[in-house]
Design a protein around this nucleic acid. Structure first.
Length: 836
RNA sequence: GCCCGGGUGGCGAAAUGGCAGACGCAACGGACUUAAAAUCCGUUACCCGCAAGGGUGUGAGGGUUCGAGUCCCUCCCCGGGCACCA
């Protein structure tokens, strides 16, 4: 054994051993304790920094801990390999996206291995491989079959650089989530998935995800955005055309003083005919259609509109209200028409004030009666209904159901629910993605490629030099085909699938990754899934995680699996930031900020175990953390201490093999260490179950190490002392193995065990070891600490009280005071309550 | 505006309603050394005091309790999500 901690030799040695012995290969057959631990697979962008590493290190600690607990753990890794950067590299540097991607995969795989992460590499997959995307295309066909994949001509989010974007990829300020450029609306025919059909299920089932962070559930809830209310059938008085509205406030129906239409509303066209106001209306509508979505939906944008000359009839009271077209009504939500109630809606109020439209109070404030003429803003609180026909005098909240029922009975309305979520735009005008398995036939229309013809291969020989757009659309060999239905010449769809589609089902594929006859085997996924623990970044809260839930629900409804949610428990780790040397500000690690820490260099200098230990010790794993170069040294120092301790006492430890700690024979020092050991096992086990508190688990190992150094053990020490010492070191090595596995393996060998420590069971708590004869309690007077006292633990609370009250120091404290009460908390404290 | 998190030493942070600051980083003092590195020992919330000791202290203010960083109410600040969504 080397005196110096030789991480540089032991780490490659054990990594080779793990690989050669295949210790992380998983037999996926039925086993009594299975555990599927999944870390979000990365986009192969190049090399990783220590911030990326946190994700994998956490997953590895969980995997190794569960293995020690006797679980058969499935821990796979792969590559989310389709995407834009590869194509940009092709354009800028002339490297083929495939070549660029696979070379990055090689780099990153080497890095993961140098961290010693436990993966079953036999299950490695890359979404850009035909054996994988064949099944991504199959997933598309399942949705298509169920009418959930459709094309429509629609204004889409367009970024000049990234082409089309899903709503989820557009920042709230109207910039592209990926590149930060301005997103504009563009009218294009695109493919969508009908995620709106699953809005209710996706929202309701969030309640099942009690092992997900509240934050992620809240974010998905916000994104889906359910509103319940009523659909009310207004009609245009002059033409009798129906003009339904959606409202969450049917209680204000008698306060409607105008109707507001979106500029894109289909009725607008018909309103222009023979209309003397047509020119003005047209100008307004045309202008609004040019305005970007971000600008349109900015609250600061002035509310503007134009009167149509028409009126709508309110079905509740037959009253007529003027029909306007306005910029603040969105076509995508509800019916694109809003019943405007200026008295009780702030937006309608502002509009009414601008255009001098009437304001009619129908919900009276019981505390401070409203008068329409002097109102400064809309009254949106609850109150008593007035001017509302049969509902006068009722509380508006309580009357709500009756109001809608009234419309239902009268045949002019119904209860409805609306969602904010929009259908999911999945097509991209890009090369480096999975082709959409559709053939456009001039006779048969859009025909799905038969499953037996999958995959639709992405051709390698494309021209990236072409000016703009999708190189696939210039590739004649790819485009020209025949219709699977009628056999006539037809053209392939040249759009590719957004990378999100590839990553929203990959967790299913890991169970049978090499089976080329099915996407996944039902019996196997039913056994291994849902994923027991999913680990990844918060940035996927409403993208990947929502898409995955949606796709899985569809696959469930298609009968291909029996579970309804893909991920049982979710853990979102915080980002690692570092202060910039330029401006002293804290930033997420990135090349552009120049605050990237390379794991490769650190591993060379300190070893992978140090980097792992520091990464886990840096703070609570769910919170962002600041990387501190100097503190890394501390983790290395700690590992060196453990190493040295074993080195210095190695002969003694080997000689103590076979000795068993016997509580009855222990002297105080070893008894104390033995207790500390078992306290530590309890604490660390607690910290690794449920919430992942690696930082406090590691702190506890440090405390145990500190306690260990207090025990003087020599060749002539007693057997009980040697036995405790050996058991402590052995347990310590197992306890640290999920965090620093290489040194743990090496020390395990030095203790005389055959490899591998992965077969060693997690230590068990000996309850008897936790017992104490004496305990120090605190003596408080009115909650303030006044002293301490060591007392036997066998005393009853009454005896403790008697003992404490008999002390001279306590009597002195009570001098001049009247005793009111004594509170005894066994093993903790005695609080004496007294007043003057 | 609505929703979800946070606010504790010089720094990262700990604390089932029961000793605030465990564990670590940094700093300072000392030992070892010709010296340095490494290692080891000690000090380190703040205020008053030579000391013994006393007082204050977990964003602010109230409350519940024998006892509050922790529970309740009101508010301030920071981060994140949603938002002209009818």
């Amino acid at each position: 054994m080397n005196e110096k901690y030789p991480f540089e030799t032991i780490e490659p040695k054990w990594q080779k051993y793990w690989t050669d012995q295949g210790v992380f290969k998983v037999d996926t057959s039925i086993h009594e304790k299975k555990y599927y631990c999944l870390t979000m697979f990365p986009y192969p962008s190049g090399t990783m920094h220590v911030g990326h590493g946190r994700n994998y290190i956490i997953g590895d600690a969980v995997t190794r801990y569960k293995m020690a607990r006797g679980f058969r753990v499935l821990s796979p890794m792969g590559w989310d390999a389709f995407g834009l950067p590869a194509e940009n590299a092709a354009k800028q540097r002339g490297v083929h996206p495939k070549e660029w991607t696979y070379s990055n995969i090689k780099q990153m795989k080497r890095q993961l291995q140098s961290w010693g992460i436990a993966y079953d590499w036999d299950r490695e997959l890359a979404t850009c491989h035909p054996d994988y995307y064949k099944w991504t295309q199959w997933v598309f066909l399942q949705l298509h079959k169920r009418g959930l994949a459709f094309q429509k001509n629609a204004p889409v989010n367009w970024c000049d650089y990234c082409t089309t974007l899903a709503n989820e990829e557009v920042n709230s300020d109207g910039t592209c989530e990926r590149c930060g450029r301005k997103v504009v609306k563009k009218d294009l025919t695109q493919w969508f998935f009908k995620i709106t059909e699953y809005a209710g299920k996706l929202l309701d089932d969030l309640d099942l995800l009690d092992k997900w962070p509240e934050k992620v559930r809240a974010m998905q809830g916000n994104w889906i955005g359910r509103s319940t209310g009523a659909r009310i059938e207004f009609s245009i008085a002059e033409t009798d055309d129906p003009c339904p509205v959606f409202t969450t406030r049917p209680d204000t129906i008698y306060g409607v003083t105008f109707m507001a239409l979106a500029p894109e509303h289909p009725l607008v066209e018909s309103l222009l005919k023979n209309n003397p106001l047509a020119a003005g209306i047209k100008a307004f509508v045309e202008r609004e259609k040019m305005v970007s979505a971000a600008e349109r939906t900015d609250e600061a944008t002035r509310k503007e509109g134009v009167f149509t000359g028409f009126h709508v009839r309110n079905p509740y009271n037959g009253e007529l209200a003027p029909l306007w077209i306005t910029n603040y009504v969105l076509m995508e939500y509800g019916t694109g028409a809003v019943m405007a109630v200026p008295a009780h809606d702030q937006r309608d109020f502002e509009f009414a004030k601008t255009y001098g439209l009437p304001i009619k109070v129908v919900i009276q404030n019981p505390d401070n009666p409203l008068a329409a003429e002097v109102m400064k803003e809309a009254y949106v609180e609850d109150g008593t209904m007035v001017g509302s026909g049969p509902f006068d005098g009722r509380n508006n909240r309580e009357a709500m159901t009756d109001i809608i029922q009234h419309a239902k009975d009268g045949g002019f309305g119904e209860f409805t629910t609306h969602y904010r979520i929009r259908d999911w735009l999945i097509s991209r005008q890009r090369y480096w993605g999975s082709p959409i398995p559709i053939i456009h036939c001039p006779v048969c229309g859009a025909v799905p490629v038969p499953e037996k013809d999958l995959p639709v291969l992405l051709p390698d020989d494309v021209d990236f030099k072409s000016e703009r757009g999708n190189p696939l659309s210039f590739h004649e060999g790819f485009i020209n085909t025949t219709c699977p239905t009628c056999g006539k010449p037809a053209r392939r769809e040249t759009d590719t699938l957004a990378q999100w589609i590839c990553s929203c089902w990959y967790y299913l594929r890991y169970v049978n990754p090499r089976d080329n006859t099915v996407a996944y085997n039902k019996a196997d996924v039913d056994y291994w899934l849902p994923v027991d623990q999913y680990i990844g970044g918060i940035e996927h809260a409403v993208l990947h995680l929502l898409y995955s839930r949606f796709i899985l629900k569809v696959l469930h409804d298609a009968g291909t699996c029996s579970f309804r949610e893909p991920f049982n428990a979710l853990f979102t780790q915080g980002m690692i930031c570092k202060r910039s040397e330029k401006d002293g500000q804290l930033y997420k690690m990135s090349k552009s900020k120049g605050n990237v820490v390379s794991p490769d260099e650190l591993i060379r200098e300190y070893g992978a175990d140090t980097v792992r230990l520091y990464t886990l010790f840096i703070g609570p794993p769910e919170k962002d953390a600041e990387w501190n170069d100097a503190a890394v040294e501390g983790s290395c120092r700690f590992l060196r201490r453990i190493w040295r301790r074993v080195y210095e006492t190695r002969d003694l430890l080997l000689a103590a093999r076979g000795l068993t700690p016997d509580l009855a024979k222990m002297a105080t020092p070893e008894r104390n260490l033995y207790r500390k050991l078992h306290e530590s096992i309890a604490k660390i086990t607690h910290d690794l179950e449920g919430a992942f508190q690696f930082n406090t688990a590691i702190a506890q190992i440090m405390e145990l190490t500190n306690a260990l150094e207090l025990l003087k053990v020599e060749a002539n020490s007693s057997d009980p002392c040697k036995a405790v010492y050996r058991e402590t070191i052995e347990s310590l090595v197992i306890l640290i193995s999920p965090f620093a596995p290489h040194i743990a393996e090496e020390l395990w060998g030095e203790l005389g065990h055959p490899p591998s420590i992965l077969t060693a069971p997690w230590p068990k708590v000996n309850e008897k070891a936790l017992a104490r004869d004496e305990v120090e309690i605190v003596i408080q007077l009115n909650g303030k600490i006044k002293g301490r006292e060591v007392i036997p633990t066998r005393l009853t609370p009454a005896a403790v009280e008697a003992h404490v009250m008999a002390q001279d120091s306590v009597k002195a404290l009570l001098n001049g005071l009247t005793l009111r009460k004594v509170v005894v908390i066994p093993g903790k404290l005695v609080n004496i309550v007294a007043t003057p």
